[in-house]
Amino acid sequence: MSNEQEGGPVVVQDLGPWVIEMQWPKGATQGGPAVLVVRPKGGTGYPPGGISSTVLRQIDFKEAGEALRRQTAVSELRSEVRERYEADRTQRLKRAAAQGVTDEYLALLASAYVTYVNQGGIGPLAHLAERVGKSQSTVKGHLWQARKRGLLTGSAGRAGGALTEKASAILARIVPGAQQTNPDTRDEE
Rank of each mutant, 00 (worst) to 15 (best):
D88R: 13
R149N: 11
P40H: 03
R158W: 13
P9S: 06
A169L: 08
S111P: 07
Q71H: 11
L68Q: 03
T164H: 00
L77R: 12
L128G: 02
G42F: 06
R84I: 14
A146E: 03
F61Q: 05
A146P: 10
G133T: 12
A67F: 09
G157C: 10
G65I: 09
I59H: 01
T185Y: 07
S2Y: 02
V101K: 05
F61H: 08
R69F: 08
V38I: 14
S52W: 00
P183Q: 05
V19Q: 14
T90I: 15
R82I: 14
Y46V: 03
S2K: 06
V132C: 08
K94H: 01
P33R: 08
N182A: 09
W24R: 00
S135E: 07
E165S: 04
L152C: 06
R57I: 01
I20D: 01
G157I: 10
V81W: 11
K148H: 07
Y105A: 08
G16D: 09
R92I: 09
V74S: 03
T138Q: 10
Q30M: 12
Q99T: 07
R70K: 11
A67Y: 02
A178R: 09
K41F: 06
V101F: 08
I170C: 01
Q13H: 02
V55D: 08
P183N: 02
S2R: 05
A110G: 04
G123I: 03
L109G: 05
V81I: 14
E4Y: 15
A156R: 12
A67L: 11
G141T: 09
T181R: 15
T102E: 02
P183C: 07
A34R: 11
R158K: 15
G121W: 04
Q5E: 11
G49F: 00
K148G: 05
V74L: 09
A126D: 08
V38N: 01
A87F: 13
A112Y: 02
G16V: 06
V11G: 00
E80L: 15
R131T: 07
I51S: 01
V38S: 03
E188R: 12
Y46H: 09
E6S: 15
R69H: 05
Q13N: 02
T153D: 04
V10W: 01
P17H: 02
R173F: 07
G43Y: 04
T44H: 00
G161R: 04
M1Y: 13
A112Q: 05
S111W: 02
M22E: 09
F61N: 02
K94A: 10
I59T: 04
A64E: 01
G154N: 04
L77W: 13
T153M: 12
V38C: 11
G121Y: 01
Q58S: 11
G8P: 04
P124I: 10
V114K: 00
G177A: 15
A64V: 02
S155D: 12
D88G: 14
R69D: 06
E104P: 01
Q58G: 10
S168D: 02
K26A: 15
G16C: 06
R149P: 06
Q99G: 04
L15M: 05
S2T: 03
E4M: 13
R89Q: 13
Q91N: 12
V37F: 05
L36Y: 08
T44R: 06
Q179F: 12
A28C: 12
Q58E: 10
T164F: 01
M1G: 14
A98G: 09
N182L: 05
E80Y: 14
V132M: 09
P17M: 01
D14A: 14
E21T: 05
P25E: 08
V11W: 00
H142Y: 09
V10D: 00
E6W: 13
T72C: 07
